[in-house]
Design a protein around this nucleic acid. Sequence first.
DNA 1: ACAGCATAGGAAACCGGTTTCACAAAATCA
DNA 2: TGATTTTGTGAAACCGGTTTCCTATGCTGT
Lengths: 339, 339
Amino acid sequence: MTTMLEVAKRAGVSKATVSRVLSGNGYVGETTRARVFKAIEESGYRPNLLARQLATRKSQTLGLVMTNTLYHGSYFSELLSQAARMAEERGRQLILADGKHSAEQERQAIQLLLDLRCDALIIYPRFLSPDEMDEIIASHRQPIMVFNRRLRKNPSHCIFADHRTTCFNAVDHLIRQGHREIAFVSGTQGSPTSLERLSGYQAALLQHQLPVDPALIIGGCWTPESGCQAARQLLANGRPFSALVAANDNMAIGAMKGLHEAGIAVPQQISVLGFDDTPTAPFTIPSLSSVKIPVSDMIAETVSKLIAMLDGGELNNRNDFSGELIVRDSLAPGPYIKK
Amino acid sequence: MTTMLEVAKRAGVSKATVSRVLSGNGYVGETTRARVFKAIEESGYRPNLLARQLATRKSQTLGLVMTNTLYHGSYFSELLSQAARMAEERGRQLILADGKHSAEQERQAIQLLLDLRCDALIIYPRFLSPDEMDEIIASHRQPIMVFNRRLRKNPSHCIFADHRTTCFNAVDHLIRQGHREIAFVSGTQGSPTSLERLSGYQAALLQHQLPVDPALIIGGCWTPESGCQAARQLLANGRPFSALVAANDNMAIGAMKGLHEAGIAVPQQISVLGFDDTPTAPFTIPSLSSVKIPVSDMIAETVSKLIAMLDGGELNNRNDFSGELIVRDSLAPGPYIKK
DNA sequence: ACAGCATAGGAAACCGGTTTCACAAAATCA
DNA sequence: TGATTTTGTGAAACCGGTTTCCTATGCTGT
């Protein structure tokens, strides 16, 4: 590989001058500049970014830590493509590290990105607690934003959707529409997002003095398969219900299939609601009602904040996003509707 | 940040010794080693990977170039998560760069990853031609694998599924099942994968002496919306057809919706076939028949080959993968079935 | 007792850039 | 015209590691 020194020799100048030409810093004469460009051109020189990053102590990269299991579903695609686009627009490269299956691996992923000297980090925690996130933020000088988790000690370092309230509102809506026996299919065991949604579901029932029946709460794992099985199990349980809320659209789609197979009409007999508003939601049969989480906006805000911290722009202080219930054909009034 | 020099001082040794302790190369006494570890521990030292990469001229990273528009759909998630997992298993970090919307940007993305001194590259070309890919491979000493594109000059540097033959076989199957008027919904204009599938579709028709009717070929853009619109337009065209092949599942799902809205029964009146075998395909109503492309296997093979090139393992020579038709409820025999 | 080798560790060069410092020439100012 | 500032450039230090080279010691074998 051609180095800067070789370019310098070819142009009859010093390394320093070549560096000045490339960076645009410092004074360089017109003719010299031209000679340097010619030498660069002729030699096919390409700067070694690693050397540059080392020398400047800036890597021009943003690190993103998230967990592989999230990769499935449109949620992840949307998040990642938007984050990458935003980063590149601001002249940064996105580097992704997988938090895998445990808190320890999540910590390692963060450490790796820090060791790679990312200028800033986006962490979408799956296993690490808010307290640990607070500590990580406190103990590193790089700007760090935490995605999808509320940090009370570091409100300006997190962007989140209030899944609990959002789910509360959705279930509240179902109840007002005449549903009382509402089943809930959760995501993978331990997922914070799923737990928040479950909590909102329970709170809404309690709010209306309705019982929280454990037989109506089934553990899934975000996949359509698990949603389908959950529906079957709910039916097998024998406990009647008029609405089913799944913690994401994929499971909702699976659940609709399970109900369909059992000869149950959606929404006439059972209403179904999902979360995330997957691109295919409007095209299922019947079209799936869902709670849309503004992932793109959220990640855009996250990246913007980080860049502002790095480049010193001004940052607006929005960190709390909320979902929007999108009613489609999979919802119908329940048996207890009062006119 | 603590540097190696500070650790060395604290342990009363030289930088070189610390480096030896960390890398495990060269001789280090037991007691010295212990002192160094203690110093590292006490100072919270973390090696600067950039410096290491520069010094060793190895970055331990694999670069992946692909286009943002592919991000949607499970295809991308599967590809990316598998690639990242494989890379990390072999001690490499994956770096992603977006090829965006033009050949020029695709070239820039490749260049960026090379400038970052990725040890090897995976390129999923969208705009660059096979010839250009051959040239890129020839002009760089880093191992480069091209994904989803056949390179006749560099057969060992590419992994691909033969979309043309795969689609040919699928359409051939439909014809044998009694379909003659078969509609085709293509992906985004210019997409090589879509073009290959279209070509296979046409070839299968010709093979059976069936006419290729332009009125039955509609341009979509990989999204469910476009599939739905395509179905509407096909119906509006008035040209009858008994089967619809969409270049991916998302469009097939949209198309089923469009047909359903028009009161057409799938598969009784029209059969529908997609590509990719999305996780939701078995759960649509009716369940969607699809051609499964072994993306995970393909990318695993790609990464394996690169690692073998880097670390000098042996490489098996499989590069040609093919899709598998998965028949579900959306397919039924056509009107020309002969018993 | 001495050659020969394995062990241990320091000094310094190196990776390929950026940046500081020093200095000279040219331009501006008084 | 002399003093000062601006412009243009090279030498060398630096970023934080790795690696080569070299020296010194302790063992082994004879």
